[in-house]
Nucleic acid binder design. Structure first.
Lengths: 110, 110
DNA sequence: GTAACATATGAATATTCGCTCATATGTTCA
DNA sequence: TGAACATATGAGCGAATATTCATATGTTAC
């Protein structure tokens, strides 16, 4: 390809892409899905809201680990918390999560 | 919650969850989306197939970096390659990718 | 053949990230 | 108030990972 044509193509594609900031945010968002502990936590929450210690038992990890990961999920607005007495009940923030999940499953099951 | 009720709930949720293996695979799949360089590469490929050096120019990174990341994308069956003379042209493997992308965007733009 | 270009890959490095331990904070009940 | 329980958080460690440099491999044109 000629040098000018190359540059032109590069500029054309760059122009059509979303802003760099948005793509960095998007990467951070998907990063959250890229850990098996967090995936399993989210998956458990598909069924119903759960307390921290229940989640820990379900995924078979320390309460502390789960608590740390729930914080990550909270920061990306993927889960919400509800305090009830001594316990914190976590649930999913919205239904995008389940759809993204399903689409991922479709891909790997091909 | 009583101890037996807790255990019962844990078992019930665990039973409804997909197999652990599947969830580990799923995490590996999403891990690929969790890096801004790879996200930008995929995003560039939404427009059209591109050679490695074009991609490198578009995302503003070394040819070597892009080549390494394209290998990661290949390993997860997210892109395919076509050799044409000296150049390798990469394109997206299927349309799930774009849908996952869009859903991620919807979430962060809320 | 060799030169020039495009891509792939191995090694080294720096950074990120998940997990665990110890402990702090928050809540209930006696 | 203090004991018991649930959750959150900070520090430290080890593993994973993204990038770069140097170089190998592959391809074309002369």
């Amino acid at each position: 390809m000629a040098h000018e044509a190359h540059q032109e193509l590069v500029q054309e594609v760059k122009a059509k892409m979303p802003q760099a900031d948005t793509l960095f945010e998007l990467a951070d968002f998907f990063k959250v899905f890229g850990d098996s502990t967090r995936i399993r936590i989210m998956c458990a929450l598909f069924e119903r809201e759960l307390s921290v210690c229940c989640i820990a038992d379900i995924v078979g990890m320390e309460q502390s680990t789960v608590s740390h990961q729930l914080r990550v999920l909270r920061q990306e607005n993927l889960v919400k918390v509800r305090r009830d007495g001594k316990q914190s009940y976590y649930s999913l923030e919205d239904e995008h999560i389940q759809k993204i999940f399903e689409m991922g499953l479709e891909h790997i099951l091909e």
